[in-house]
């Protein structure tokens, strides 16, 4: 049950990244960082006990310079911590070179949420259902964290530790997500299944393939809603690497997926169904990435 009342909290409004990091160092676990607030606010209204409520909410509202979405053919795509999902959709290069993320962002939640929610926030929520998380996992990238002792990059492969938990330390601020520059022959796609169009995914999948002709040179496959965190399908990837994408290979790939995932029954679907359709959805994402209808 939610509440009409937003519980009491102390609002922190740092004016810079440095100040934000300092506040994090001081209050550590007692702080919740807020950018778009689409998760934080809801969680606070639904909190079942005072123990789950943050003492401090640190809003990034006044921290300048974090709202960017910058593309550089050499360096890749840089997404600032305050860039919203809607803002990600603006630069044409996102659609051109990071198709999976563009697609995930385009169908993300609802227009109202896209206008407020941030891309990085989606990753930091560490939900296995995050559409942007799933796409970023397949595309690869690093999350840039600023802490009291400087900055460090965390590879997305090492970012999610368990449900709701990331590699970010309590005194660190996530300031940027960087995606690698587009490689020749690289293509990606994102697909999801929902109960209704405007919904959280019951299953989502993203693929990035490095193709040479019809042969897959490298593959990164990510799936959501099938494990406590977004999941890389590393075993299935090996069935693609070095292989021509024949119907037989795709069949093997699809058949491999249910063995790699551990979905649960929840409000959106069942473990059984997720296993049944996981291979189909992956196969379709691969076909879409390769331009096969």
């Amino acid at each position: 049950m939610s509440s009409r009342i937003l519980p009491d909290f102390n609002l922190l409004l740092p004016q810079s990244v440095a100040e934000a990091v300092e506040l994090l160092s001081t209050h550590r676990d007692r702080i919740t960082v807020m950018a778009g607030g689409t998760d934080v606010m809801v969680a606070m209204k639904f909190a079942q006990s005072a123990a789950k409520l943050p003492e401090f909410v640190m809003s990034l509202e006044n921290v300048p310079g974090l709202g960017y979405v910058l593309f550089d053919p050499e360096k890749g795509l840089r997404i600032g911590a305050k860039a919203t999902v809607a803002e990600l959709l603006a630069p044409p290069e996102v659609k051109q070179h990071y198709r999976a993320l563009w697609h995930a962002a385009q169908t993300f939640a609802t227009a109202q949420v896209r206008n407020t929610a941030t891309v990085l926030g989606n990753l930091l929520r560490a939900s296995p259902a995050g559409d942007c998380s799933c796409a970023v996992y397949a595309l690869g990238g690093v999350v840039v964290l600023h802490g009291p002792h400087g900055s460090r990059d965390v590879d997305i492969d090492d970012f999610w530790l368990s449900y709701g938990v990331t590699a970010r330390q309590p005194d660190e601020l996530a300031v940027e997500l960087t995606l690698p520059p587009p490689a020749a022959g690289s293509r990606s796609a994102f697909k999801r299944m929902t109960r209704m169009s405007e919904d959280l995914a019951k299953l989502n999948v993203a693929v990035r393939l490095e193709m040479s002709g019809n042969t897959c040179v490298d593959a990164r496959l990510a799936m959501g809603c099938v494990a406590p965190t977004p999941l890389r399908l590393t075993k299935t990837e090996t069935l693609l690497r070095g292989h021509e994408l024949t119907p037989e290979v795709l069949q093997r790939v699809a058949a491999s997926v249910p063995w790699e995932i551990s979905p649960i029954d929840d409000k959106r679907s069942t473990a059984e169904y997720r296993k049944q359709v996981s291979g189909v959805l992956l196969k379709r994402a691969i076909q879409e990435a390769c331009g096969v209808a």
Binding site: S2, M196, K267
Partner: peptide, 16 residues
């Protein structure tokens, strides 16, 4: 009840 909100009780929306 598990879905007493629009998050988990799904009606047809405009796009559907």
């Amino acid at each position: 009840v598990q879905n007493n909100s629009f998050t988990d009780y799904k009606m047809f929306g405009p796009e559907d």
